[in-house]
Every structure is written in C-alpha cells, then in structure tokens.
Design a protein around this nucleic acid. Structure first.
Length: 310
DNA sequence: CAGTGTCAAGGTGGA
DNA sequence: TCCACCTTGACACTG
C-alpha cells in the first residue's frame, strides 16, 4: 500500500529510540550471562509490542519519523544468538511494517560506536558487517523500502585520514546489497567532517546524512545551509529525501552533549536557514518525544510541516 | 527495595 | 602502555 498522498513530500520530524511517555521500552535487554532462547523470545515479543505502542503514540502526535533502537533484538549479531527470530516474529514485523507504510512514516536505525567499517582489524570489520546485516534484517522483516536507512560514522582515523577513508571505500564495495541499499554515513563531531563524507560519496555513491550539531562542532568550510544542500544532493529518489540529525547545543558548553530540551528559537532559526532543502529531521534531544511534539508545532507554524488530514 | 556498579563490541588522547 | 573518557539506559547485584 503506497503512502497517502497528503503525507508524501512533507517534512517529517522524529526522535530516537525511546519514548518516555508511554511507560514501556522497545529496547529491553539483559546480560549476556543470562542469555537463553526463552529469555530472548520473551524480550523480543515485549519489545515489538512496545514498538507498536510507540508508533501509535507518534501517529497521534504527527511524529512521522522514528529511529528504531538497535536493542530491538538483543545480541542478534552475537554468536550466542542462534534463534530464528525473523521467522518466529515474521508476522509481528510485517504488521509493524504495514502500519509504518500505511501512515507514511519513515524509519532509521543507528548502530553504535562498535560498528567500524574501516577498521584495520579484520575481526572488527567482520563483527561490524554482522551487526549491519542484523539491522538490515529488521528493516527487511518489516518490508520497508530503501528510504529506511541505517546510519553509521565513517570510523576510525588511525593516524592516517586518507588511508582510512580509502579503506572505508574498499570495504563498502564488498558489502551485501541488502546493506548497501540502506547504508548512509554521517559527519561526526571529531573525526570525519561533511567535506570528508562528501568525498567518500563521490567515490562510492553512499548518501550523506547531515548532522547539523556535529557540523557546528566539527565544521569543514561551509555554513549550515550550504552543507545541508550539499548532503541533500547525495540522496537519490530511491533513498528518499535527506535525513538530518538536529540537536541544540548543551547550555553551558560541554561540547558533544545533547541538550535536555529543544531550544525553540534555535530550531526555528535552523528551519528558516535550511528552508530551501527538503529534509526529514531527527531530534537528538534528551527529552525525546516532548521535544518532537514541540518541533512539530513549530514546523507547522512555519509552514514546513503539513499534518495529516483528519 | 533503593542505590549503584557494570554491561558484547572501539577509538582517541593524555599521562 | 595503560587508563579515563566519550554517552546512555537499564540490568542485576549489593546491602
């Protein structure tokens, strides 16, 4: 079922992984030491049920962008996990996917720091690929198209930026198609800038997700508006429009930290500045859905977001 | 039962 | 060469 017309093309706003309002988590996990097939199945069942609740909440609030937690299936890429979770929960995943597509929602995932595609140690690369395969399997199980993305950082520098970027390109070309169609890179706060990511894009074709906050902390010669525009051009039709990570600088300065709540004026200014660029915005703000609700209101008022009819 | 140390996985930079 | 830090929530143990 295609997304309703009134939802396509409009900016979508969202938040990552956790909803603090509804009293359940879709990322419940447990210690590896207490791993068992039963424990896994019980946890995944509960996580999927909660994910459904979060998405229903989001729909009510016109929050149409959401990042699914990497802990949805705990230890999925670990050798300890031999469970056929894709089969066991095929129906639940399919239902979630139908809900997402039917309401014109967009999904991303963001494996954490341990996924290093350009690592020098082949073992790290191998574990990273396994983790990416798991992320792709989750999105595939929901039958989501190529606009549902998996975002990663470029990786380590290892004292030689050029060689490390080349290593990224080399490893990238070896990835499965199921990963390639979803993988995007993101500029980070200390290693690889937007300019670095764009160079990797030129070599590989990989889309560049724009992290506005990281770009402020770790700039590369362009302003926010131009950087957003340049990143936007790396996304093709099948990728959907640009994804942007946005957060307000933490008051009081400690760089890299995320603010407790959205700075409405700053956000409004950001929207105005980047107005020419079509994008979906992920708010990396500690209070999660509260800020997303506020942002939806602001974007609505500023004419960047059209709520669903009815 | 509240408080808190620890958790699969890495890279970086200072000592 | 080693260790704290990055950033984060929550599991699971301790008293």
């Amino acid at each position: 079922m295609p997304a309703p017309d009134h939802l396509t093309g409009a900016m979508k706003i969202g938040y990552p992984c956790i909803n603090r309002s509804i009293g359940c988590s879709s990322g419940r996990t447990f210690r590896l030491a207490s791993y068992s097939g039963e424990r896994l199945e019980e946890t995944v069942r509960e996580n999927l049920r909660c994910l459904q609740e979060i998405l229903r909440f989001n729909l009510r609030e016109c929050i149409l962008f959401f990042r699914i937690t990497s802990d949805l299936v705990p230890f999925a890429s670990h050798p300890a996990c031999t469970a056929a979770w894709e089969e066991t929960f095929a129906g639940a995943f399919a239902d979630l996917g139908q809900f997402i597509r039917g309401h014109g929602m967009r999904i991303s995932m963001h494996p954490d720091q341990f996924v290093i595609i350009n690592a020098k140690d082949p073992g790290i690369v191998e574990r990273s690929v396994a983790e990416l395969r798991y992320h792709a399997a989750v999105l595939d199980a929901m039958h989501l198209d190529g606009t549902a993305k998996i975002q990663v950082h470029v990786g380590g520098v290892y004292g030689d930026r050029e060689a490390s970027m080349q290593r990224f390109c080399r490893e990238y070309s070896r990835l499965d198609e199921s990963i390639l169609r979803r993988l995007v890179i993101e500029n980070d706060d200390s290693r690889y800038t937007v300019a670095d990511c764009l160079r990797i894009h030129e070599e590989t074709g990989i889309p560049v997700l724009f992290d506005a906050f990281h770009h402020e902390v770790n700039p590369s010669g362009t302003g926010v508006a131009e950087a957003a525009d340049l990143c936007s051009a790396t996304w093709r039709g099948k990728d959907g429009i640009l994804m942007t990570d946005y957060s307000t600088p933490f008051p009081g300065g400690r760089k890299g930290r995320h603010a407790e709540s959205l700075d409405a004026a700053h956000f409004s200014g950001f929207l105005a500045e980047t107005a020419p660029t079509d994008m979906d915005i992920m708010l990396e703000i500690k209070d999660k859905e509260a800020s997303a609700r506020l942002a939806v209101g602001i974007a609505c008022r500023d004419g960047r977001f059209r709520p669903p009819a009815g």
